[in-house]
Nucleic acid binder design. Structure first.
Length: 322
DNA sequence: ATTTAGACCTGTCAGC
DNA sequence: TGCTGACAGGTCTAAA
């Protein structure tokens, strides 16, 4: 679900709120979410650590911890962070009452009592009425309790997300499968030209390959190709120099505007406060099949490429001829 | 050596 | 209104 812009936007929010905080403990409600090392070691190692920075690499969110460790979180399709103010209580009674429902739903969170002074803090943080909050805290798989009483929730309905613990010495190993950051100075037209020259497959598949460029997913691949007027089925090594130049420009443009608009939300993506991003209103083709192209009026098409839905304008993005 | 279908999971929405 | 099936921001791996 989240691609680079969604991850980057949330990471920036988390950085302003979490740097300097101390983790008391992690509560794990779905064990497979912890991908490395085992759950017991993970919990033992992070307890008591300070969060020294929050960063991003590709689609990974990184929590740097004291003691030269870092937590790498991949949100996959439906993973989200939610920062719960202090004073809220965690309710796990479902674990005993209905173990089957517990496995999918996880714990629920209940507001502080009116006598609790931390209610004042919670109230100052907008929108935290119980019915609204219950949707934002649903499907909690891992809950990081901070020493100051706040909780960082990792919610993930589909359970595809993964959380790993690494030492800083292992950082190269942790990200060995990732290509350059598309918004860094390493991502040049020359680099893209060289990478595409090796691509025997469709340009759409190459854009999705994290070992070539890190962070582009299904939305921004379609949007970048639309920007450049390139058909998604074009062989990567067939693009002209002019097309590569436009594509490079398109990748940078759609990712940058995606971040500026707080990311793209359909069903699942939410920021740290559980709010949707509004980038969808700025998009050209993604999920707009059977709607007219904003440029020429031709109906946008949707076709599968490598089992991913792919959206494009058949008039603006031609496969053959000029 | 590459492609591709299947697996991992749950929720939502279009269409009959 | 109710059921069924298609589909979902991702990535790994077994099978072809």
């Amino acid at each position: 679900m989240p691609e680079m812009p969604e991850v980057e936007y949330t990471v920036r929010q988390l950085r302003t709120s979490l740097v300097g905080a101390t983790i008391d403990e992690a509560m794990v409600f779905w064990e497979r979410t912890i991908g490395r090392p085992d759950v017991a070691t993970f919990r033992a190692e992070i307890a008591g650590r300070h969060i020294t920075d929050v960063r991003r690499r590709g689609k990974f969110s990184l929590l740097d911890l004291s003691g030269d460790l870092f937590v790498a979180i991949h949100r996959r399709m439906t993973g989200n962070f939610f920062l719960l103010p202090s004073g809220w209580h965690i309710d796990t009674h479902l674990r005993e009452e209905d173990p089957v429902a517990w496995r999918t739903k996880g714990p629920s969170f209940i507001p502080p009592h009116e006598s609790d002074e931390s209610l004042v803090q919670a109230a100052s943080l907008q929108v935290l009425t119980e019915p609204v909050l219950s949707t934002k805290t649903a499907h909690c798989r891992v809950c990081f309790n901070l020493v100051d009483g706040r909780r960082l929730l990792f919610t993930d309905p589909r359970k595809f997300g993964r959380i790993e613990l690494w030492s800083r010495q292992q950082e190269a190993e942790a990200f060995k499968g990732l290509g350059p950051e598309p918004l860094s100075e390493n991502f040049t037209v020359a680099f893209l030209t060289e990478a595409l020259a090796k691509g025997k497959t469709s340009i759409k598949q190459v854009l999705l390959a994290q070992d070539i460029i890190a962070g582009i997913g299904n939305i921004y691949a379609d949007e970048a190709l639309s920007y450049a007027g390139i058909h998604p089925l074009r062989r990567a090594d067939s693009l002209t120099a002019a097309e590569i130049h436009l594509l490079h420009e398109g990748i940078v443009a759609v990712l940058t505007t995606g971040i500026e608009h707080g990311g793209t939300s359909f069903n699942d993506y939410r920021d740290m406060w559980g709010e949707a991003g509004d980038n969808y209103s700025h998009m050209r083709v993604y999920k707009k099949h059977r709607q007219p192209c904003g440029h020429c009026g031709t109906l946008i098409e949707r076709i599968p490429i490598a089992q991913r839905s792919t959206h494009f304008c058949p008039a603006c993005q031609r496969l053959t001829g000029e």
